[in-house]
């Protein structure tokens, strides 16, 4: 009897919470579907008479040049993620298996890049980028994003490589495999699980970054989140356009999440628990 009431109560609370969590998504999607005229004459929960998300998107594209910035962010996510993956898997392999002198110290030095709040890098990076001509260039952004992704990626690869059995390596060595072959033919092909975690996590992070994009770019090489943030100006925005743009820019990361949900959770656990 008591257990039944308790279960009903639990479900009730959870359903209320779920509805509260869905409310922002629901309202934003509805707003993005309506034409501006319909939006201003209706209540937020009323369904649109005609679906006008395509024309809303077109207007958002036109007003905020979303297409250009979308391409930039795509380039940053893919290139930045790729560089981080290659650099950190190589470093992880060397630290765990080649074990040069000071390997643990080198690991700590690279890993320490995750400890500090990003604010501590901003002023010197801004100055350095202006000095070297990297300011407002795509190559500069790719370099910064990959540097920011490497510490966590290295942590993941290093942890993973400790679990690869040594026998495989010994056998390869007897067959005359050098370190480069060992890395390219034995370690790299086995690393699909950590690579999926790192790629998913770091690409999502790069895609969602605002701070570095805002400070290190001005015009052509702006990432998408900076242009999205300029939409939120307190006055004058047309809500259906803004909401259509917001959905459009969130689409890639939400899609990645749906496709690779399994890796998303293990990455989240890794990024926090470190196991």
């Amino acid at each position: 009897m008591g257990a039944k009431i308790r279960r009903i109560f639990t479900y009730f609370i959870l359903i209320v919470l779920v509805l509260a969590w869905l409310l922002p998504i629901f309202s934003v999607v509805l707003a993005a579907l309506k034409s501006p005229a319909e939006f201003s004459s209706q209540k937020f929960y009323e369904l649109p008479g005609k679906i006008s998300i395509v024309s809303n998107l077109k207007m958002a594209f036109k007003q905020w040049k979303l297409y250009e910035y979308f391409t930039n962010s795509l380039i940053y996510s893919i290139c930045g993620g790729l560089i981080a993956i290659i650099a950190s898997s190589m470093a992880g392999f060397s630290i765990i298996r080649l074990k040069p002198k000071f390997n643990f110290l080198l690991f700590i030095i690279i890993y320490s890049g995750t400890l500090f709040p990003f604010q501590i890098y901003l002023i010197p990076l801004y100055k350095f980028f202006n000095m070297t001509g990297l300011y407002d260039t795509r190559i500069g952004m790719i370099l910064v994003y990959s540097a920011l992704c490497i510490p966590f990626s290295l942590f993941v690869y290093r942890g993973f490589y400790t679990t690869i059995p040594r026998e495989i390596e010994e056998a390869a060595k007897i067959d005359g495999c050098g370190p480069l072959k060992l890395y390219a033919y034995i370690f790299l092909p086995q690393s699909s699980a950590p690579t999926a975690v790192v790629a998913l996590f770091q690409m999502t992070w790069i895609w969602n970054d605002l701070l570095f994009g805002m400070i290190l770019t001005r015009t052509d090489s702006r990432p998408i989140m900076v242009s999205l943030a300029t939409m939120s100006g307190v006055s004058g925005g047309i809500i259906p356009y803004i909401m259509a743009g917001t959905i459009f820019t969130s689409f890639p990361t939400v899609l990645l999440f749906i496709l690779l949900r399994r890796y998303f959770i293990s990455g989240m656990v890794l990024s926090t628990a470190g196991e």
Binding site: I86, I110, G113, Y121, L143, L154
Partner: peptide, 11 residues
């Protein structure tokens, strides 16, 4: 590569 990127751009 990892070391140089992190040291030059972060540390």
């Amino acid at each position: 590569p990892a070391f140089l990127l992190v040291v030059i751009l972060l540390l």
